[in-house]
Design a binder for these strands. Sequence first.
DNA 1: ACGAGGTCCTGCGAGC
DNA 2: TGCTCGCAGGACCTCG
Length: 274
Amino acid sequence: MPELPEVETMVRDLRPHLLGRSFREVRLRRTDVLKDIRRPQLIQRLTGATVDSLSRRAKHAVLHLGQWRFVVQPGMTGSLFVTDAPRSEEEAHYDVLTVRLDDWRELIYRDIRRLGTLRLLDQRAWQRYDASLGPEPLDLALTPDEFHKVLARTRQAIKKALMDQRLLAGVGNIYANEALFAAGIDPSRPADRIGHEPAARLLEEVRRILSAAIEAEGTTVRDYRRGTGEPGSFQLELQVYGREGEPCRRCGTRLTGTHLIDARATVFCHRCQP
DNA sequence: ACGAGGTCCTGCGAGC
DNA sequence: TGCTCGCAGGACCTCG
């Protein structure tokens, strides 16, 4: 499931293929992923556009197309990649968007469950959208002190707060579980009751884990693929996610699984995360 | 203002 | 064997 490291990997993989390329022919096979735009407008504005640059913000891949920002949020099962091989009807079954590039390759947005979204925003709309998202965890401008203050803004469980995109951008279920384990914090603790020291430790672990996951080109549990079509490898380094009932790698205690927080799979070690 | 819970969407695996 | 059902969960919505 694409969180920050997975989207960062997609963007890095795509950059050399897309920089300076222009969009020749745009096909949209599904419209339910469109957010605040209709098919004809999207196709009209994308066709002929040139990719000036690519970036990532939170869990979004952002293609800069002149005045427009094409914002792809892969959701659970979305992936963005470039291919030069023609796609069979079977391969194309989950393709949502197909863009023929001026070098005759194709940029594909594929999304099995279509929980992802596509947006096309002008500068102002992008600025507004960007401002609605919390700070980037890897941006060192976010100090431990500020992070502590962010957490103090909610009484929600710390795990839910970590995943709240308005508070902190880019962390989803997998990395929230991992960071809380690494920081030794019980996922159900209210965010506003996390002390200054534990908050600093948590920010440090969030950064360490996200960086290591980018280094490993993301976590592939099921559907996530890099911009190259290959899986990532950080799933090999997961300490708690998906390991409910298995022994804690640090102390051997059986890992606890619960769905009590935000109805999401939470796995933790009750001994290491008191 | 906040929190709890429902909804979207499809594939997959468990259970009958 | 073939069916149904619950689950996976990010973002967004409604309700209390």
